[in-house]
Design a protein around this nucleic acid. Structure first.
Lengths: 136, 136
DNA sequence: TTCCATGCAAAAGATTTGCACGCAG
DNA sequence: CTGCGTGCAAATCTTTTGCATGGAA
């Protein structure tokens, strides 16, 4: 899937910054990016891309349901590809590594939430934290 | 339980701002406060209490395991009493109401996470969001 | 008396916004 | 050619920090 095409389809223009940011995300697997990291990577691929442009592009990609963000323990955002149950992760309080949860775990939790809460649909969007094995 | 006593026990001083903030939290039930709201409430109870003092007091209460915080969709913090499984909630994307999850739900999710993730202990700290019944 | 906690102001960090220009369509 | 998207700078919002003073113990 080509994210810029998705943008074009919806009437947005294809620009160099958008191409660069989309290509980083497309090849990222499940990586979770701080805005700063994404900005650095993007600026390295092209001439300097403004931080504001990175924010604006991420906002756009979020509108279009390609990207999603949540917040780290200290408040700054992390952005990553959205997929049905992929909007969750667990961060090590010690080394700050971010891991994905197993598909099965995420699916189970999602089902429990829909069943038990008084919400019919849930965009789960969460961070778990703890200390991972490496840091013990 | 008296939170200021808990602070005193650990060698911290009892001051008017701490008394005021503790008393608000003690009578809050499960309410989730933005720092701004807590600051307003506290300032109304006493003379003006500085925002920095609110932050410092909340940080202290978090150290002492009385309070916990997480982040709203747009990044600013919300603070609330900590209890074993009380560090989670679900926020309506439309009216911004914050609800607690059922004890049972929270407990189940916690158990699943510990069982399935490669973390041995988890300080779950998360926000779910969706659209609540009122807003449908 | 001692030194911790506060208020105030300034700093720091993250994100958003206004505006003029350049480029995509 | 038209107007959307960008870069730049400034503004805004949230949280943190330095420092002198006042008050708790």
């Amino acid at each position: 899937m080509d994210f810029v095409i998705e943008l074009k389809k919806r009437g947005h223009r294809i620009t160099k910054p958008r191409e660069v940011i989309c290509s980083i995300l497309e090849t990222s697997g499940h990586e979770h990016f701080t805005v700063e990291k994404l900005h650095n990577l993007a600026s390295r691929k092209d001439r300097n891309i403004d931080l504001a442009t990175v924010y604006r592009t991420l906002e756009l990609l979020e509108e279009v349901n390609i990207v999603e963000h949540s917040h780290q323990v200290h408040g700054s955002g992390i952005y990553y590809l959205k997929s049905e149950y992929d909007n969750s992760h667990i961060i090590c309080e010690s080394c700050k590594s971010i891991y994905d949860l197993k598909e099965e775990t995420k699916k189970t939790i999602n089902e429990i939430l829909i069943k038990d809460s008084h919400f019919d649909s849930i965009n789960h969007h969460f961070i778990y934290s703890g200390v991972c094995k490496k840091c013990k």
